[in-house]
Amino acid sequence: MDRVPILRLGDCLLVTVQVDMHDELAMSLQDDLTNKIVATKARGVLIDISALEMVDSFIGRMLGNIASMSRILDAQTVVVGMQPAVAITLVELGLSLPGIRTALNVDAGLALLRRALDRGDEGGYVD
């Protein structure tokens, strides 16, 4: 079975979603990621969705779940690289991904995490 790779960058984890997400894959990603956060004591999680051609309510919910689970495990989540067409469709759909921080790309996402971690945020949604 396919698995979404999870890379470690210092005290952060980078998840690059490159394949078309289906249910089983989304479930296994949630398992793998929570395990890895605990195992590596990661403080931040970056989810790169620049390769995703669409985000429907199922994937939206998955992203929200990952952010909530990470928060409980004391790690902050930033979703990066959402494509313009995907963002426009999400707005049309009425999905606003509440509680999820976003950044344009991996660099901007890492910088955002760095600032938040340096400030010692509790992981709540700020801005």
């Binding site: 930033v78 979703v79 990066v80 959402m82 313009p84 963002a87 426009i88 999400l90 707005v91 049309e92 606003s96 991904l97 921080r101 976003t102 950044a103 344009l104 901007a108 996402g109 955002l112």
Partner: peptide
């Protein structure tokens, strides 16, 4: 407002 929301979703 939609444009603003879409930009926010992308992190801008």
């Amino acid at each position: 407002l939609k444009t603003v929301s879409a930009a926010q979703l992308m992190g801008a």
